[in-house]
Each structure stands twice: as structure tokens, then as C-alpha cells.
């Protein structure tokens, strides 16, 4: 009797919490950036976590002014962003982290879409696809200038539509 009650108590306590976590973390397009916390002992200067509910509200608010953005947001489940401002001597650590995540993604059947190394820095981009539908995207940027960016967009993504929307947001990153 008490054993049953204990089990029931445990189940009741854990069920809603696990369900909350499953809201996003069980999505095939989700990537846990938890290991990044404290990269090179530096806390992220930007930490964004947009979940399905907030994205849903955003979608509604822009439905009239920007139907394309609204449509894009309607298919997204979450956005996770971590940005680190690093010194030059800490960039190797960020590059190592990006490579480590890249290996993890490859082993999880993420498709490497692009890796660029140049004077600006490095860019890694991965996509998770199923039946030719993009279910998640990871963009990792390690700028030579010192910023390291880790971005995970979760949900059904139309790259063309996403790109069109991104270009219209008019964010001048140099001013940030």
C-alpha cells in the first residue's frame, strides 16, 4: 500500500516536470547547449531561449504586419542562442567546443551543410532533416573578432523563408 503510494507520489511529482522538458528537448531538432555554459570559464553574454509558447504569441502579434514571418514562426518550436564575448586566447576553446558539437551532431545524423574558415572566423552549419523536411538547424560562429555564437533553431524550417525573414529583421550586429 505504502509502496504503491510512494510510487504514485513519485510519478505524480515527476510527470508534469518530465512533460515540460519533453516540450522541446525531445524534439529531433533540439541540441543541448548545456555543456557550453561557462565556455572557457566565460559566461554567455547573450542567452536566449524562446519556446513554443512565446513563439506562438510572437506569431500572432506579427500575423498582420508580416505574414511571412508569422508563417515561419508558426512552424518553429524553439530558438536557443548563446553568445560569448571572448578574448583572443579563449577562441581556441570556442573552436574546440564547436568541433566537439559538430562531432556530436554528425553522430546523431545531423547533416553538415557548411563549414567555412576564413579571415572573419569559422562558420559551422548543420541541419536535421527527415523526409526532406528540415526539423532543426544549428549555426555556430566563432568570429576572429572574439564572439562565439551557438544557435539552435528547432522546428520545421524552410531555409529560403527563414533567410528572407532574417534579412528583413534589419539587425545590425555591429551595433550590438
Amino acid at each position: 500500500m505504502r509502496r504503491l503510494a510512494t510510487l504514485l507520489l513519485t510519478a505524480l511529482l515527476l510527470t508534469p516536470l518530465a512533460a515540460v522538458a519533453q516540450g522541446l528537448t525531445d524534439h529531433p531538432g533540439f541540441v543541448d547547449f548545456g555543456d557550453l555554459d561557462g565556455i572557457a570559464d566565460v559566461e554567455p553574454t547573450v542567452e536566449v531561449s524562446l519556446g513554443p509558447a512565446l513563439l506562438g504569441f510572437l506569431r500572432k502579434t506579427v500575423a498582420n504586419e508580416d505574414p511571412e514571418l508569422s508563417s515561419t514562426l508558426g512552424k518553429l518550436r524553439g530558438i536557443e542562442l548563446r553568445v560569448f564575448e571572448l578574448r583572443a586566447d579563449q577562441l581556441d576553446n570556442a573552436r574546440d567546443q564547436a568541433l566537439s558539437i559538430s562531432k556530436r551532431l554528425k553522430s546523431a545524423d545531423w547533416e553538415p551543410a557548411l563549414r567555412v574558415r576564413g579571415g572573419d572566423g569559422t562558420v559551422h552549419m548543420f541541419m536535421k532533416t527527415r523526409d526532406e523536411i528540415v526539423e532543426g538547424m544549428v549555426v555556430m560562429i566563432v568570429e576572429s573578432g572574439g564572439d562565439a555564437v551557438f544557435l539552435n533553431i528547432v522546428g520545421e524550417i524552410d531555409p529560403e523563408q527563414l533567410g528572407s525573414v532574417a534579412s528583413r529583421f534589419g539587425v545590425d550586429l555591429d551595433d550590438l
Binding site: L81, V149, L151, L176
Partner: peptide, 8 residues
């Protein structure tokens, strides 16, 4: 959201 898309 704008920031995230800006990085994209």
C-alpha cells in the same frame, strides 16, 4: 528573435 535571426 531578431538577434537570433541576425546571427543566421
Amino acid at each position: 528573435l531578431a538577434l537570433a535571426l541576425g546571427y543566421v
